[in-house]
């Protein structure tokens, strides 16, 4: 599996301590998926990655990082 890091946890707290549930609802996924993403156990599709980045109003590369 490709190693892709993310800054979702930090971004959540920078956005008024947004809950995982709230982020999941706004990104259109389940809270379990957000948990898996934050723990690095799941690599999202391009679409979900864009949706999460849009929730934070950030560019894709500001949220996700390809670690090789």
């Amino acid at each position: 599996m490709a190693r892709i890091g993310n800054t979702i946890r930090r971004l959540r707290f920078e956005h008024g301590e947004m809950t995982q549930e709230d982020l999941a609802r706004r990104a259109g996924c389940t809270r379990q998926t957000i948990i898996a993403l934050e723990q690095g156990r799941y690599v999202p599709s391009l679409e979900l990655a864009f949706r999460i980045a849009r929730v934070f109003g950030a560019a894709l590369e500001d949220v996700f990082e390809y670690l090789g």
Binding site: T30, T33, S45, L48
Partner: peptide
Amino acid sequence: TGVVEDERTYA
């Protein structure tokens, strides 16, 4: 209401 299935559950 709400999302109960998504791409991770499909995976």
